[in-house]
Simulated scan of single mutants.
Amino acid sequence: MQVGLHALGIGYAARPEVVRAVAQAAEAHGFARLWAGEHVVLVDSPLSRYPYSEDGRIAVPPDADWLDPLLALSFAAAVTETIGLATGVLLLPEHHPVVVAKQAATLDVLSAGRFTLGVGIGWSADEFAALGVPFAGRGRRTEEYLAAMRTVWQEDVATFEGDFTRFREVRVNPKPVRDRRIPVVMGGNGDAALRRAATTADGWYGFNLSAARTLERVRVLAGHCAERRRRLDELTVAVALTDGTPALLPELARAGVTELVVVGAPPGTPDEAEHWVARLAGRWINRAGA
């Protein structure tokens, strides 16, 4: 099982010297991927419930620095050579798909094919309102945007007609480096997210799940794959746990989990951040057999 690190872009990890230190230390200590999430907007008194905690509140304070994940990962790409890079997740329906297609392909080219696009449909109605994007229908919008982006990546001259976006005979370059495709991971813990992962994606990213809930969700994902005549092992299955210990890793691997994602907030100086990454690696990577 591989081990990823979700630790870039927020708070201290929005400082360039800390991003550099975490990225380089993660590569040196054998982490498989660096993950960075997204919120364009946070509000002091949210109307929407955060779906990834028991109390319905996001742990990040609304006044914290939060870097754009594609830009943060571009910086990380420039100071590393081999480690994978992934958005965990980009809120795709909040963005224009042609712009995201170009940005993602640019990062893929600059990182020599190390980029994975993790996407989600979003949960904050406040955020969608601030961006002028309808909150309703965001799941269908996400699916259509992915289809449009893959069209842009694959075709020299691309045309797409959908309910939410359309374009005709456009050229968008550069193209992704791996056969004109970028792996897409679907984020979200609900049944609809698992269905989308099995139907439209190359993988799934489950966030803030207990080990028991992870095993249950992977079984549901496997069922959705079987309905679509896909094997579970055709997908990458990355999970960030709330109660994880290294002793659980063999059982998770047998169930089909391919990557454990360690989530944390690094300390505020480069030296401290390097030691922090080393401690995480010592706890997780050897036990995972990464």
Results as ranks from 00 to 15, higher is better:
residue 80 T to I: 06
residue 94 E to S: 13
residue 69 P to L: 14
residue 116 T to A: 10
residue 93 P to H: 02
residue 113 G to K: 14
residue 86 A to E: 07
residue 67 L to S: 05
residue 74 S to E: 07
residue 114 R to F: 01
residue 83 I to R: 15
residue 56 G to T: 08
residue 61 P to E: 06
residue 92 L to F: 10
residue 77 A to Q: 10
residue 66 W to G: 00
residue 61 P to T: 06
residue 97 P to T: 15
residue 101 A to H: 12
residue 113 G to Y: 10
residue 62 P to K: 00
residue 115 F to E: 01
residue 111 S to L: 09
residue 99 V to D: 13
residue 57 R to K: 15
residue 75 F to I: 10
residue 102 K to N: 05
residue 110 L to G: 00
residue 83 I to H: 11
residue 103 Q to S: 11
residue 76 A to F: 14
residue 69 P to M: 13
residue 66 W to M: 13
residue 104 A to I: 05
residue 99 V to C: 09
residue 113 G to F: 05
residue 83 I to L: 11
residue 92 L to V: 07
residue 60 V to I: 15
residue 105 A to M: 14
residue 103 Q to R: 15
residue 89 V to F: 02
residue 115 F to D: 05
residue 95 H to V: 03
residue 108 D to P: 14
residue 86 A to I: 04
residue 72 A to C: 15
residue 71 L to T: 12
residue 94 E to C: 13
residue 106 T to F: 03
residue 71 L to A: 08
residue 74 S to N: 10
residue 74 S to F: 00
residue 55 D to F: 10
residue 96 H to K: 09
residue 82 T to Y: 00
residue 70 L to K: 07
residue 98 V to M: 13
residue 99 V to W: 14
residue 58 I to T: 00
residue 116 T to Q: 09
residue 117 L to F: 05
residue 66 W to D: 04
residue 55 D to Q: 09
residue 106 T to E: 03
residue 108 D to K: 05
residue 112 A to K: 14
residue 97 P to Y: 15
residue 70 L to E: 11
residue 83 I to W: 14
residue 116 T to Y: 07
residue 108 D to I: 12
residue 64 A to C: 08
residue 90 L to W: 01
residue 70 L to Q: 04
residue 87 T to W: 01
residue 60 V to D: 09
residue 79 V to Q: 07
residue 103 Q to Y: 04
residue 92 L to C: 05
residue 57 R to C: 00
residue 100 V to M: 07
residue 114 R to H: 10
residue 88 G to Q: 00
residue 58 I to S: 14
residue 106 T to R: 05
residue 105 A to C: 13
residue 113 G to V: 06
residue 73 L to V: 11
residue 64 A to F: 12
residue 97 P to H: 15
residue 75 F to M: 01
residue 96 H to D: 15
residue 77 A to K: 05
residue 91 L to C: 15
residue 72 A to V: 12
residue 112 A to M: 02
residue 57 R to T: 04
residue 69 P to K: 14
residue 79 V to S: 07
residue 107 L to N: 08
residue 107 L to A: 06
residue 67 L to I: 02
residue 57 R to S: 03
residue 77 A to L: 07
residue 57 R to A: 02
residue 72 A to F: 08
residue 73 L to Q: 08
residue 72 A to E: 13
residue 85 L to S: 11
residue 68 D to R: 01
residue 60 V to M: 10
residue 105 A to W: 14
residue 114 R to V: 12
residue 87 T to V: 03
residue 98 V to Q: 12
residue 75 F to S: 03
residue 72 A to H: 04
residue 112 A to E: 13
residue 78 A to E: 10
residue 88 G to C: 06
residue 96 H to G: 06
residue 81 E to P: 00
residue 80 T to C: 09
residue 108 D to W: 15
residue 95 H to C: 07
residue 59 A to C: 00
residue 67 L to C: 04
residue 54 E to I: 03
residue 61 P to Y: 01
residue 92 L to G: 06
residue 55 D to V: 06
residue 98 V to E: 04
residue 109 V to D: 07
residue 103 Q to F: 02
residue 86 A to M: 05
residue 101 A to W: 02
residue 92 L to K: 06
residue 107 L to C: 08
residue 111 S to K: 13
residue 60 V to N: 05
residue 91 L to Y: 04
residue 56 G to I: 02
residue 61 P to L: 03
residue 108 D to Y: 14
residue 62 P to E: 00
residue 99 V to S: 14
residue 55 D to E: 11
residue 71 L to G: 10
residue 110 L to R: 03
residue 77 A to C: 09
residue 96 H to Y: 06
residue 55 D to A: 04
residue 53 S to I: 01
residue 54 E to M: 07
residue 70 L to D: 11
residue 78 A to I: 03
residue 60 V to C: 04
residue 110 L to F: 08
residue 71 L to C: 05
